[in-house]
């Protein structure tokens, strides 16, 4: 492992991710670019997020029904599904789907631009490629991933409801009452803060990997794979760290 190269790459990554984020605050603003990215990242991802989160909610509810019925505790399905989905599964699963669809797209698009000298062309035109290409993608991710997470959580809860009521024959009223009871400020904050961190991580990692693509089509494949793998690993690690921090900050005892 080339330590010097690794440190240099990390420096470049931190510089790009910070510069990309700070680009939100200064002129010029690339509103149109950000809107196009939001359309691709948000509207284009709704269907897949709905499908994945629906089945995650249904599978979770099914597993819980199987275990809790033997204990005579099936009335707790709603509560456990609600806590799991709102705090943990909703944000993480949606972020993973977002990585696979949007993150991979960012890395391959920017990689292709880098290989085709389009990024160099932007630099020659006297423009800042980070501001022009990275900042709109960070902005769109920071807006659309939380929005998709809200949709994903809602759909997961609906999936859980379907299994609890129509398969496990529980009362729908009990299910929704349990859900309403767990929607406390603490639980909602614990789940709602994560998508912003995940969005920043995914967009920064995927943009960096894309812009640093070298070596033709093989290099593009490697850059896209690295972007997706790194993003997934960082989502899982960040999720643990965030969960630990949030439980402490929000006063949960473990």
């Amino acid at each position: 492992m080339d330590v010097k190269r690794t440190i240099s790459d990390l420096q470049d990554f931190y510089s790009l991710s910070l510069h990309g984020l700070l680009g939100i605050a200064g002129r010029p603003f690339y509103f149109k670019d950000a809107l196009l990215q939001m359309d691709y990242a948000g509207a284009g991802s709704v269907v897949i997020v709905v499908i994945v989160d629906l089945f995650v909610g249904m599978a979770l509810s099914l597993q819980l029904a199987a275990e809790l019925s033997s204990l005579g505790l099936k009335m707790y399905i709603g509560m456990i599904v609600g806590i799991s989905v709102v705090r943990e599964l909703g944000p993480v699963v949606t972020a993973l789907v977002f990585t696979g669809r949007v993150g991979a797209g960012m890395a391959s698009e920017l990689g292709s631009m880098a290989l085709g000298h389009q990024v160099d062309t932007i630099r020659v035109f006297g423009l800042d490629p980070v501001k022009k290409l990275v900042t709109p993608r960070i902005v769109s991710s920071l807006i659309m991933l939380p929005a998709l997470t809200v949709i994903g959580v809602a759909v997961s809860l609906l999936g859980g409801y379907y299994i609890a009521v129509f398969v496990s024959h529980q009362s729908g009223t009990v299910y929704w009452t349990s859900i309403r009871n767990i929607l406390t400020v603490e639980n909602v904050l614990a789940g709602a803060s994560k998508p912003f961190i995940f969005a920043y991580l995914i967009s920064s990692i995927c943009c960096y990997m894309g812009l640093s693509t070298r070596g033709g089509s093989v290099g593009l494949r490697q850059a896209t794979t690295r972007a997706v793998v790194m993003s997934i690993v960082m989502i899982i690690v960040a999720d643990f760290v965030l969960t630990r921090m949030l439980l402490y900050v929000l006063g949960f005892s473990v």
Partner: peptide, 13 residues
């Protein structure tokens, strides 16, 4: 001060 035309054109695709 310069304007470049790259080998493959480098148009924004």
């Amino acid at each position: 001060k310069f304007s470049i035309v790259f080998q493959e054109g480098a148009l924004f695709d």
